[in-house]
Computed example of a mutant assay.
Amino acid sequence: PTYLLRYKFRPGDVLQWRVTHRANVRTTVADVEEAAETNSISTKVWRIQEVRPDGSCVFEQSVRDVRMSQRLSGRNEVRFDSTSGDPPPVGFEGVAKTVGKPLARITLDTLGRVLHREQLVTEAFQTPGLLTVPLPEKPVAAGESWAFPYEVEVPLRAGTVKRIKVQQKFTLESVKSGLAEIGLKTVVLTPIDDPLVEVQLIQRINEGKVRFDIEAGRIVSQEMNLERSVVGFQGETSRLHYATRFEEEFVPGSFTAARPANTSQPE
């Protein structure tokens, strides 16, 4: 069988996802090793404001709450919890200001393409992972793939910018109980011969699995894991090890829009 994958929206819906992100970066330069570990748990919110006749929607994205911690080599761990009421520690003021406020107004079509984006708060706290998974135009069967090409701009030492061609490849791996499991892999198409470029690029690569509820027309979970090492980005013996884990789970009962009453009679 083939499956038509489409996003579905209703005006007034409030959709929420619980987002967990862990990143661990270890760098060694001139035999000096430094480590940085960051953790965050946040609630991502979409408020659907308008649904157009073609199915596309306008929604406001916000972050309802966030708990963060950061540990750097030789320093005490710093924590911030937006629900505690305590003033944010140094370095977290920017995050604290954006919690609970509309961050962006986005127009999205049923294939998950961003038609328009209006940033309402600059330098807002961004939840990691994909805003949406681009969906295929035609119905797909298990095992079939589709691709989404894009470009990443990476700053170079000379102050210039290198454009890197990247492709995200999606594969419908299976459909069970109405849930489509989609595999995601990022392929870098531009040849990379500069470790400094590679160091910046690995932090923008996604690899993992997405679960999509076909009937409801939304992502119910994302799970991304990545572990990479780069040598020689700042001297021959320099080394960077990057490990990240990202999880997102839909929060049931997010809706506020009135559901149509079930008027069907039992046969």
Rank of each mutant, 00 (worst) to 15 (best):
I202H: 05
V58Q: 02
Q203M: 12
E173T: 05
Y242Q: 03
L131Q: 03
G100M: 05
Q70N: 13
P252R: 13
V29Q: 06
L156G: 12
V210P: 02
F233S: 02
Q16L: 03
V25K: 03
T98V: 15
I205H: 02
L196K: 14
P149G: 02
E215F: 13
W17K: 03
V63C: 06
L103T: 04
Q119T: 08
V154F: 01
A158F: 09
T98W: 05
L240F: 00
H241K: 12
G217T: 06
A216V: 06
Q203R: 10
Y242W: 13
E118G: 04
I205V: 09
T127E: 12
E118S: 08
G183S: 10
E181W: 02
G232N: 11
P134L: 06
I182R: 00
G178Y: 05
K209Q: 15
E93K: 08
V140T: 04
V90W: 06
A180R: 01
R6A: 14
R239S: 09
P191A: 14
L240E: 02
R117M: 08
E236S: 12
R47W: 00
S42M: 06
G85Y: 03
D193N: 13
H241V: 15
E249K: 04
T20R: 10
E248M: 15
E77A: 13
V175P: 01
F9R: 01
S264V: 15
E173W: 04
A243I: 09
R245N: 11
F92Q: 02
A216I: 04
F59Y: 03
T263V: 13
F92S: 00
F125Q: 00
F148G: 00
Y242E: 07
P139C: 05
L131K: 00
E181A: 10
K8P: 10
P89L: 11
V29S: 03
A30D: 14
A216P: 04
V199W: 02
E267C: 10
H241L: 12
F255V: 13
R18F: 12
K209S: 11
W17P: 01
A36V: 08
T2F: 14
A35F: 12
R75V: 09
E247G: 10
V197M: 07
H241F: 12
I202M: 14
S264F: 12
R245A: 14
A96F: 07
G159Q: 08
E207P: 11
F92H: 06
Y242C: 10
G55T: 01
D81I: 00
